[in-house]
């Protein structure tokens, strides 16, 4: 049994087996659209909001998804299991890795180690 996962703020859609979490299903197909982090419900990088469709979730870090958010459809894709076709909004993103000083704000481009200064 496969369900269709559609990312509404992107162009991706892919099939997801009922027994596989949405993030793994995406990765297994070599698809992109949801950022991949720890895959264990701990880091919050793959946070999404289910806009439409039935689902269940596994244990997710409360530091990443609050009780209110969870009841509002927020989930971590690595702990999200589709029980029908889903439409998702991607919320999570890779955070900047190094930042901050009184003398300048440094952002390290993650792709090429380029740096820039924003004052």
């Amino acid at each position: 049994m496969k369900h269709r996962i559609e990312i509404v703020n992107g162009s991706e859609s892919f099939g997801c087996p009922a027994d596989l979490d949405v993030l793994r299903a995406m990765e297994c197909l070599g698809r992109k659209g949801i950022p991949v982090g720890c895959r264990g419900g701990g880091c919050g990088i793959c946070k999404v909001r289910v806009v439409e469709g039935p689902y269940r979730t596994g244990a997710m870090s409360r530091a990443c998804v609050s009780v209110d958010e969870q009841s509002d459809g927020y989930a971590l894709a690595c702990k999200l299991f589709a029980e029908g076709d889903l439409r998702l909004q991607v919320v999570g993103k890779m955070a900047r890795c190094f930042a901050g000083s009184a003398g300048g704000f440094h952002v390290y481009g993650l792709q090429g180690a380029a740096s820039q200064t924003n004052n």
Binding site: P35, V36, G37, I45, S61, R96, Y108, Q111, A113, S115
Partner: peptide, 25 residues
């Protein structure tokens, strides 16, 4: 130095990895 951060962290690939630097708990 930050301009050599790629090989500093990953000597073989010589480039940074987004998940390695961003994913924390």
């Amino acid at each position: 130095t930050d301009d050599q951060l790629g090989p500093a962290i990953f000597y073989h690939d010589r480039k940074l990895n987004e998940a390695f630097l961003s994913v924390v708990t």
